[in-house]
Write a protein that binds this DNA or RNA. Structure first.
Lengths: 109, 109
DNA sequence: TCCATAGTTCCGAAATCCCGAACTATGGGA
DNA sequence: TCCCATAGTTCGGGATTTCGGAACTATGGA
């Protein structure tokens, strides 16, 4: 299996990050990966809140996060390990990710 | 003409803001309004960079920004005045807008 | 070799975006 | 008052994107 594409940090674009995180489910997935540092599998986040996400949709959400430069994915055996690239992104766009994640956390709903 | 809908600041959702600003043209429009405090008309921003935006598209971009809670629009005679709501949004989601606008400004391309 | 698990790809339906054309609203003449 | 010009919205339908079930691929273990 060919290695997955990951953009270099200098190629990461703000619009891609905003688009990726403008979906609350993707934002929740990213928050979980970031909090855990590394979530072992896509299937480890097979639901967000009480909402079950079909695995084809989940796969494309991970792809969007990966191509936006937010996570790094590598296969370990039969499963995928997803790492947050928040430190890199923070260096390139200071304050962006924390402000976004705080905004979601601050939401009442 | 009935007054335009504006969400109360407590109803403003992070995903709506991220979606609105994930389009570079909308982000540029919002930046211009914010910088100016108040841009007199939609037609005053009829192009972004060297790219001309048709007025039907422009109208819908303003609608997205307005419904996301980012701007306030009121008719003055034949034209519209658009005000940035950045102070309100800043109070609700601290650091969010400045981080986003800085991210766009930091982009090389 | 066969099977189970973990993800990806495919594809059709649904939703969204885009923009030209037609329409509406307002104010300024004549 | 009537007509026109300007400013912006709405409509319609074609293009693009998103969603998710079903089929497929990749890996490791029995």
């Amino acid at each position: 299996m060919r290695p997955l594409f990951h953009p270099a940090i200098e190629d990461v674009q703000p619009e891609a990050i905003l688009h990726a995180l403008s979906d609350p489910r993707r934002a929740a997935i990213f928050a979980r990966i970031t909090k855990a540092g590394c979530v072992e599998a896509c299937s480890a986040v097979s639901s967000v809140g009480d909402q079950v996400i079909p695995k084809s949709s989940l796969s494309s959400h991970f792809k969007v996060l990966r191509e936006a430069g937010l996570i790094r994915c590598e296969r370990h055996g039969v499963e995928m390990r997803n790492h947050s690239r928040c430190a890199e992104v923070e260096a390139r766009f200071p304050g962006l990710l924390s402000a976004i994640m705080n905004a979601y956390a601050a939401r009442l709903s």
